[in-house]
């Protein structure tokens, strides 16, 4: 199944805005920056079966930046993993969908995340386990993890980058949603990651840098086969708050929830 991913991304952005506004929740900027990545992944690239979320032949997807839960839930609901009306309960008392990604009771979510620096080590373990089963198979299952840039401050990621390179986990792909802003400011000011490409390449990963809002580029980078036995990391250059003019590239929207007038304006911009 392949969707019109551009329209899908727009739908995801609208869902995320509605959810975050309704719940007065944070992280709309973090959601919007990865809308296009999710749209391509869940628009047909990931091998998953919404009717059978535990299907063993599926690719494994981990959203390590678990604070961007709203738009991830939206992607899963749009794909039919659970009813769309669940999205209305996001962050509500007693609801299944918590503010950070939870796998408990949520079909399609592999693991609960929210504390940063956890997704890539889990992904390494999954890639090891799947590799042991898929040896020699023509179409091995993939493990894809999306990380934030600020998250790379956590040392556990670098343990995992070293590990995956050393152990040649070519079935593993990490995508870094490099929107350049973390909670207190720009990543370059808080704890500079540059030269990021060199650091990742030095860990023996294949590094691909793309415009994280260009669907063709996202798709091409994800569909390109691994180079030799190296894991792949895609540095997706993105804009925090992408798609809503006044949220773009503004630290404010890491935490601020839109007021009613801002919400209406944002929806209008997205053509909702």
């Amino acid at each position: 199944m392949t969707l019109d991913t551009v329209n899908f991304a727009r739908q995801l952005r609208i869902h995320a805005l509605r959810m975050v506004h309704r719940a007065k929740a944070s992280h709309i900027g973090s959601c919007l920056s990865m809308a296009d990545l999710l749209a391509v992944l869940y628009g047909g690239l990931l091998r998953v079966d919404p009717a059978d979320p535990a299907w063993n032949g599926r690719d494994r997807f981990l959203l390590s930046k678990g604070h961007a839960a709203a738009i991830y839930y939206a992607a899963l609901a749009e794909r039919g993993f659970f009813p769309l009306d669940w999205l209305e309960s996001y962050c509500r008392d007693g609801a299944v969908l918590a503010g950070h990604v939870t796998s408990k009771g949520v079909p399609g979510v592999e693991a609960s995340t929210g504390s940063l620096g956890h997704g890539l080590p889990i992904a390494c373990g999954m890639a090891l386990g799947l590799r042991a089963e898929d040896k020699g198979r023509p179409d091995p299952r993939r493990v894809i993890a999306v990380l934030s840039d600020g998250e790379l401050d956590e040392g556990s990621n670098w343990e995992a980058f070293l590990f995956a390179g050393h152990h040649k986990l070519s079935g593993l792909t990490a995508i870094i949603d490099y929107n350049k802003i973390q909670s207190f400011g720009r990543t370059s000011e808080v704890l500079d990651l540059e030269p990021l490409r060199d650091k990742l390449a030095a860990c023996r990963w294949t590094v691909r840098a793309i415009d994280g809002h260009d669907h063709d580029a996202i798709s091409r980078s994800l569909l390109a086969p691994p180079e030799g036995d190296r894991p792949t990391v895609i540095i997706a250059h993105t804009v925090k708050g992408k798609g809503v003019s006044f949220m773009e590239n503004d630290l404010l929207w890491h935490y601020r929830s839109p007021r009613d007038d801002e919400f209406a304006k944002a929806l209008a911009e997205l053509g909702a």
Binding site: I122, G129, A160
Partner: peptide, 23 residues
């Protein structure tokens, strides 16, 4: 058998991921 190196956070995460694939 894997010696993950002196990296216990990664070891615990890897263990969880491996277990999620049935190990």
């Amino acid at each position: 058998f894997i010696n993950v190196g002196i990296a216990e956070q990664n070891m615990a995460g890897i263990a969880a991921g491996l277990a999620m694939t049935g190990r």
